[in-house]
Design a protein around this nucleic acid. Sequence first.
DNA 1: CCTTTTTCAGCACGAACGTTCGTGCTTGGA
DNA 2: TCCAAGCACGAACGTTCGTGCTGAAAAAGG
Lengths: 219, 219
Amino acid sequence: MAGRPRDERARKAILRRAADIASKDGLEGLSIGRLAADLGVSKSGLFGYFGSKEELQLATIRAATAVYLGEVVQPALAVPPGLGRLWQLCDSWLSYSERRVFPGGCFFFTVTAEFDARPGRVRDTVAAAGLEWNRLVASAVGDARRLGELTEDTEPDQLAFELIAFMETANAVSLLHDDPVAYQRARNAIQRCLRASATDTGSPVLRRLRPVRESGPRP
Amino acid sequence: MAGRPRDERARKAILRRAADIASKDGLEGLSIGRLAADLGVSKSGLFGYFGSKEELQLATIRAATAVYLGEVVQPALAVPPGLGRLWQLCDSWLSYSERRVFPGGCFFFTVTAEFDARPGRVRDTVAAAGLEWNRLVASAVGDARRLGELTEDTEPDQLAFELIAFMETANAVSLLHDDPVAYQRARNAIQRCLRASATDTGSPVLRRLRPVRESGPRP
DNA sequence: CCTTTTTCAGCACGAACGTTCGTGCTTGGA
DNA sequence: TCCAAGCACGAACGTTCGTGCTGAAAAAGG
């Protein structure tokens, strides 16, 4: 037997570009022809990597997940459990969105909104990823409570819901209105939210708050 | 001149159906051919109502705005200004999303996420609608503060950001996971948020809170 | 009644879509 | 050195997209 193995680096490059496009135009707006033209390869050649559009979409989600893990989750896991890690998780997420790691903002925000009412494997995959992210935040809350940094009556799922709400809305508002102030609003809200549940409001993590009083005009 | 004027009722029916479809599949997923087949009319006949796809999209946004005003804004304006109206605004929104007035959840959530990174008239229209909604919530906060029901240091734009974040995330989570508990989480969060800024925490509006302690399993 | 005006269905167009096919070219193993 | 496995390519498939054109039915004005 012989023949050359399919270039794994090219595949990664394709998927990275695919995730960039999908973060702006969605996974349906991502077309094989335009992606191929964008990368200077033939449509059928690119198609051969995946075998179907749905498989390309699923592979793109996996690639975006890897980026997400590196940009958001790893920096947080580098911090010891507790309020510090919880804050780092939120801050990494906001930074990941703000730095436009994907040009269309958070890849998963775009794709989730696109598929949340369309049954299929893509939706299932996106939903599973969202659930895992939710669990990660909730477990970070649970850790902080177990360590005595959050009050006993703090409900992890409820607090996770609220924190995630601030992050995703910052992403959405900043994209729609080109308004970077949205991220500061989210940081304010998160700090306030954590302080309200903290046992020690003088915790160093909760000191960085610098509430912005209508500093910037709308562009 | 003669001939019958273009049927305005038919036009409304077209746009109502268009908004339903767009709330699930987006304004790009809304195709003229499928919409026409769905309504039992010809593609070109339907096309004549609008003249271009972009015009259909814009008209659909206007039609959805009218629905939104009737379902969310009017019920709130029927309540006198203050904390009561502010709460009603949030509750009407959550009800509008929860009842699936549009089958894909909030029309504007879907369309905003779809177009927030695509320049054009559609994006501009959606952004303007979002800004107006934001202003409405912020001005309701401002009213409540002026009436002495919220503390002096309450920042309307900041509080509006947080309230909207809870609502939109409830919409997103409930759609993605078929999880009605998300709406209760949002109501909890909103109540807590308002109470934290209220001057009288015994206000009747803030009494309806029944925090749900992990009542329902994930479906 | 007839005429005028407008609506709407049918058809066709070019472009783009995802997908398939056949053909060289590259390459690893015999 | 030669073979054969298999990838990349261009071309074409059938379908659907948005958009024009045309002709017939229908309503309004005389």
